[in-house]
Write a protein that binds this DNA or RNA. Structure first.
Length: 571
RNA sequence: GCGCCCGUAGCUCAAUGGAUAGAGUACUUGGCUUCGAACCAAGGGGUUGGGGGUUCGAUCCCCUCCGGGCGCACCA
């Protein structure tokens, strides 16, 4: 890669000036006035060299020009002492040619080659809704998994679902006791729609959760059900539990399919709980008894809390389940890195879990990385499934799809195609709105603002892609050639070539938004080019223009794929 | 109260310690008889929450204050 080549040249130059460089910073510039790459080494090492920055830059430049390269056209000193590299047209042609040859692999790298990585995300709870917060986790997780995959890792996707615990007990209690107007059992019949069954479970949960807080005797009953679910000692609870669990899981599958996620592993709390409890009990030196519970005493000076791992009922909590999960995952898939993606509300718990893990499974703790994302909040405030104030992923997708349908021109598509396309566009809008910003921060989710189809949006990228496809379709049979009769390397050409470095950075920082913002820049550059240039005009530079269009098309396709957004050929 | 995160244009967000802090949106205007107008072009809009410090250079690092979010023992 050109970056490494330049870095090497700078290092050599510094060496010959007897400067022991520690860091060579090399920046890909955005302003064409600053060339294509710039380094600040002269500013950094001026003091050490006993020269003023511009003098040092002069010396370095002299050293650099001793070994001319056909890739470099010009080296300039600018501003306070930056050294700017302008690359040659020859380099740009070769690089574009290379991009086209790589095709679907354009942008990929090998930084994680040979590594096994498992990525866990989404983590919805059976018996509760799959709401827009899960949608956020799924969108970010899927994109991170794809970026890691594109960096050469053997990647597995995992979903961890809370099929036991108090929330389940509340829902089960609700399903048994929820009244209906005619006094008959409210549970939908087996041939009822999945949607109907899911609504029943959600209502039951809300009913149970409210009663739990309002009525101490209900609280006791629910605690009893909770125990029965773990031990499977109640025939009535078992039956309704098994029914609800299956309905929930079937329902989630339909959502994953829609979202384009395929999990390699499903883990359940019913499984991690038992094992996690065993691990905790086997390590009495690490976990101690306190008020009838078993806790891990976090080091307060490091800001760690004391957390309950096994409650006084003898049941494992979230913490010991997570501990067990790390090992269960490893036994199935011996990972080099395990990435767990959750909302940031569990940050402090996770720090305690990792601290405990560093004592129980030190080698696994080192391999575990917790990534948290912000909350998806509504302008009205926080969602609550207890009060029924939630937006489910399905309803959001359905509403957005309606709006997309309204924009699709009537005559151009068959009815079936139209529906599929509207869903792609809707998901593109939703996913992009989540991925366009740094994932650690909360997103204030406003329908009008967030789900735009214009400007800084998913559909803008999809539209641009469809445009390139349509143009390439019309150009069938014509020559495509990066070199032929090119006048000069334009801005679009350069932006295309930034792609691999963007993917590299997104992988290093595990931040999909670098790709999202880059694709917008690329699309904008292309649309501007498109508005000012007639591509198919039989002019001598037509083959080169077509090469640019093709490269933009491929870059958008690959980039959208990394975001988990589909790229329709027409829209 | 303690800990972690955040504060950038009216709004939603970018910016690898670098050069003149950028996009979208909204608003005002212009462009479809040329390859797709979900597009393009132009315009105004900023004490980067306040104050101090480190640095050749700070939106970014440190301190402090203000404002917001999340968490702080048997829910996940």
């Amino acid at each position: 890669m050109i970056r490494e080549q330049l870095r090497g040249l700078i290092q050599n130059a510094l060496h010959s000036l007897n400067l022991e460089e520690e860091i060579v910073e090399l920046e890909q510039t955005t302003d064409p006035l600053h060339g294509d790459y710039a380094t600040n080494v002269a500013l950094m090492y001026a003091k050490k060299a006993g020269l003023n920055p511009r003098e040092l830059a002069q010396r370095i430049t002299e050293e650099l020009s001793r070994a001319p390269s056909s890739d470099i056209e010009k080296i300039e000193i600018a501003g306070p002492g930056f050294i700017n590299f302008r690359l040659s047209d020859e380099y740009f042609s070769g690089a574009l040619d290379n991009a086209l040859k790589k095709s679907k692999k354009w942008g990929n790298n090998e930084t994680l080659a040979g590594k096994k990585v498992i990525v866990e995300y989404a983590d919805p709870n059976p018996f509760k809704e799959f709401h827009i917060g899960h949608l956020m986790s799924n969108t970010i997780g899927e994109s991170i998994a794809r970026i890691i995959e594109a960096s050469g890792a053997d990647t597995k996707r995992a979903c961890y679902q809370g099929d036991v615990g108090m929330h389940v007990a509340k829902a089960v209690w609700g399903m048994i006791w929820i009244p209906n107007e005619s006094g008959k059992p409210k549970k939908p019949s087996d041939d009822a729609s999945l949607q109907k069954k899911i609504s029943f479970i959600a209502e039951s949960y809300a009913f149970g959760a409210t009663a739990f807080e309002a009525n101490p005797s209900v609280k006791e009953q629910i605690a009893g059900i909770n125990k029965n679910i773990y031990s499977r000692e109640g025939p009535q609870t078992n039956e309704i539990y098994d029914w609800g669990r299956k309905v929930s899981l079937d329902y989630f599958e339909t959502i994953y399919k829609k979202l384009g996620t395929k999990f390699d592993f499903n883990f359940f709390e019913s499984q991690t709980g038992e094992f996690g409890k065993k691990v905790v009990l086997e390590n009495p030196a690490i976990f101690e008894k306190s008020d009838g519970a078993i806790v891990y005493k976090g080091d307060e000076s490091k800001g760690l809390h004391t957390r309950v791992f096994i409650n006084s009922e003898g049941l494992p909590t979230y913490e010991s389940k997570e501990l067990g999960l790390a090992k269960i995952k490893y036994d199935i898939y011996p990972y080099d890195t395990s990435i767990v993606i959750t909302g940031n509300e569990v940050n402090d718990y996770f720090r305690v879990i990792l601290d405990a893990m560093s004592k129980v499974f030190p080698e696994l703790a080192k391999k575990t990385v917790h990534i948290s994302h912000g909350m998806l909040r509504l302008p009205s405030g926080k969602m609550s499934s207890r009060t029924g104030d939630v937006i489910t992923a399905e309803s959001l997708i359905a509403d957005t799809k309606e709006r997309a349908l309204a924009k699709i021109s009537q005559e151009a598509f068959l009815q079936g195609e139209k529906d599929i396309l509207a869903e792609k566009v809707a998901l593109g809008a939703i996913k992009y709105s989540i991925l366009k910003q740094a994932s650690g921060k909360d997103i204030i989710f406003d329908f009008e603002q967030s789900l735009s189809f214009e400007g800084d949006s998913g559909p803008y990228l999809q539209y641009t892609y469809a445009r390139t496809r349509s143009l390439l379709e019309k150009a069938k049979g014509r020559d495509i050639d990066v070199l032929f009769k090119r006048t000069e390397t334009n801005a679009l050409h350069k932006v295309i070539l930034h792609f691999p470095e963007i993917v590299l950075r997104a992988n290093e920082e595990r931040e999909p938004h670098f790709i999202a913002t880059y694709l917008i820049e690329l699309a904008r550059e292309f649309n501007s080019f498109y508005a000012h240039t007639i591509v198919l005009n039989d002019a001598p530079d037509e083959p080169h223009k077509l090469a640019l269009v093709k490269a933009v098309s491929q870059t958008l396709e690959n980039g959208l794929n990394l975001l988990g957004i589909s790229a329709p050929e027409r829209m």
